[in-house]
Design a protein around this nucleic acid. Structure first.
Length: 571
RNA sequence: CGGGACGUGGCGCAGCUUGGUAGCGCGCAGCGUUCGGGACGCUGAGGUCGCGGGUUCAAAUCCCGCCGUCCCGACCA
């Protein structure tokens, strides 16, 4: 490609309307242009990167026996109403809803379970056709509440989604394992540093699921990882650790102490001179018309996510002041002793405590010496505690958890029968019985990968693409277009490299060398080959590696033969 | 949806407090010089100051409403 003809007008300064480093560089380097919030045009350079990522995804999916299809972006609403997600997405206002000429309600696809499930149900009737793995790479549409950071959270984005169909759970696990393996290969090939973490299933549903997280400052997701084992989880889903073998204390008698105006854990701990973890946190929520009390040590926060999941699809709400009054609860002074008509759910971490300080269930008073079983009962034990940095690892119990920010580039789910049940997608098994498919679904944010890679591969000069997804392998820079010899050498090399199958751009613009160098570094070609008068006189070319900054001299007469090998060495 | 910032030639910005001639840099067009790290000189084109209303003799500037973009939060395969 000739730079003089390429539709790639780099910007002297970063755009004023982007904050995220990757969004600024992708605009400045002429990879994308924003049309509106969360919607982007891919320019020639950006499209080449996107196609490279797509190619890697396609190769690795095909290698695992997945078959590519292409499902439409426009969807009928009916299957979504049956699965319940039309309502769910509508509630979040996430679906772009359309109406056709017959006033039929349609949607722009935010994901495709409701398309693929009926598709497979219609075409697959027998266990003999299983397992089956279908995928497609399609633009997805979600009217996000807050598009963010360029391609990282866009309203139109390219996604690879795969769907597996199996006879039984063992089969699903095998299919799932293959996809996780493919994902590891894909992200590795794209040059991403990533972690596989346990995650929250969100609106998709299902049980076992993993997120593929690329650590980056601008990432939207918080995840924890262990300092000594390979445990990693999204903070929304991370398990909390609690000591299994408690040190028991002799129970003391309960004693009411006045604590006027001390309605917070901190204030009570301070007044009574006890550590916060000895104060029993008792929070009351409402689920439909029922009241639910949640117990935790005073130094822990409730994970609203974990709590919500316990009662889903019912909503978990906070109490209003009127609710407190109606239930006769003293806000800020609630204890689990003698609570009536309230379901008490305790976090595992309070199992081992004794002689708690708890609210007295009357204003301005607390009780000391409160003990499990003797003074209060627990209806359910659950993991409800939020995880924080420095917590003991729930797996190895040795390391501590570190907090990090990351971009979710992939998400895999073992759905089971979440969609095949309501959509009645079944096959006939070997014994003649009709069974629902066991499904898995697997998503990769193809366009999002571009941003994630840039976030991990940038410096003060611009982008440094990993060669696997770089828009071109090499930029050839003739330093002076007026020098016939320089131009002749560069043109000859351009022909030879192209012939050798190298993807090369020749910067044949009538610009000064400095402009060409700066653009080359901004755009981030892995290799730059400088053809200049100086070099020609010395019989050598200059080869620069963007990622490492290394420079090498290559003999001019041997350049065409040597360069392909050098390019292959670029990271 | 709540909070904040911003909106002025293609791009990046100043001007607004204190109302009165729309400005700077880059880019773009022409001519000349220059040519290995974003050159220089001269000439030139290009702006409903986001939109609508109001105040005023007069509004980019003050007031009200709306729209758009970004950031924080809520939310989010």
């Amino acid at each position: 490609m000739r730079m003089s003809e390429l539709f790639a007008h780099t910007l002297r300064e970063p755009p004023g309307d982007e904050e995220a480093p990757s969004a600024r560089l992708l605009a400045q380097g002429a990879f994308v242009r924003k049309l509106m919030s969360g919607v982007f045009t891919m320019l020639p350079l950006g499209l080449r990167v996107l196609r490279k990522v797509e190619g890697i995804v396609r190769e690795e999916m095909d290698a695992k026996g997945a078959q590519e299809v292409r499902m439409p972006a426009i969807l009928p609403s009916e299957p979504w109403k049956i699965s319940g997600r039309w309502q769910a997405y509508a509630a979040e206002n996430l679906m772009f809803v359309l109406h056709d000429r017959h006033d039929r309600e349609l949607g722009l696809g935010p994901t495709h379970e409701e398309v693929v499930t009926p598709l497979v149900d219609a075409d697959v009737s027998s266990y003999r056709d299983l397992p089956l793995n279908l995928y497609h790479i399609q633009w997805k549409y979600r009217d996000e509440a807050r598009p963010r950071s360029g391609l990282i959270r866009a309203r139109e984005f390219l996604m690879k989604d795969a769907y597996t169909f199996d006879r039984d759970l063992d089969g699903l696990r095998v299919s799932y394992g293959k996809m996780v393996d493919a994902y590891r290969r894909i992200f590795t090939r794209c040059g991403l540093d990533f972690r596989v973490v346990e995650a929250d299933p969100g609106l998709i549903g299902g049980d076992v699921n993993h997120e593929f997280m690329a650590p980056a400052e601008v990432g939207e997701d918080l995840f924890v990882h262990c300092t000594s084992c390979d445990y990693a989880a999204n903070v929304e889903a991370a398990e909390a650790h609690w000591p299994k073998a408690p040190a028991q204390e002799e129970p003391k008698p309960m004693e009411v102490v006045p604590t006027p105006g001390r309605a917070t854990i901190e204030a009570v701990a301070d007044l009574l001179q006890v550590p916060e973890h000895r104060v029993l946190k008792c929070l009351v929520y409402k689920v439909k018309d029922e009241l639910v009390a949640v117990l935790l040590p005073g130094d822990r926060e409730v994970s609203e996510n974990k709590l919500a999941r316990l009662f889903a699809p019912e909503e978990v709400g906070m109490l209003t002041d009127a609710d407190f009054e109606k239930a006769g609860l003293a806000k800020g002074y609630i204890g689990p002793q003698g609570l009536e008509g309230v379901t008490v759910i305790a976090d595992h971490s309070i199992r081992t405590g004794a002689n708690w300080v708890a609210g007295a269930n009357e204003p301005d008073a607390h009780v000391t010496g409160v003990n499990l079983d003797r003074d209060f009962a627990v209806d359910r034990w659950e993991d409800l505690s939020g995880v924080k940095e420095g917590d003991v690892c729930p797996r190895c119990h040795e390391g501590t958890l570190m907090l990090g920010r990351s971009i979710e580039v992939g998400h895999t789910f073992q759905l089971g029968t979440r969609y095949s049940d309501p959509l009645e997608a079944t096959f006939v098994d070997e014994d003649g019985s009709e069974r629902p498919f066991l499904m898995g679904c697997y998503g990769i944010g193809v366009s999002r990968i571009i941003s994630a890679v840039v976030e991990q591969h940038l410096d003060e000069k611009g982008i440094a693409w990993p060669r696997a997804i770089a828009p071109y392998d090499v930029v050839l820079i003739p330093t002076n277009m007026d020098d016939e010899q320089v131009v002749a050498v560069a043109e000859r090399l351009y022909g030879e490299l192209t012939e050798a199958g190298i993807e090369v751009v020749i910067d044949d613009r009538d610009e000064r060398a400095g402009v060409k160098f700066t653009d080359a570094e901004l755009i981030g070609y892995p290799v730059a080959v400088v053809v200049g008068k100086r070099g020609i006189e010395a019989g050598a070319l200059e080869v620069r590696f963007r990622a490492t900054g290394d420079q090498r001299e290559v003999p001019l007469n041997d350049a065409a033969a040597a360069l392909p090998g050098l390019v292959a060495e670029a990271p």
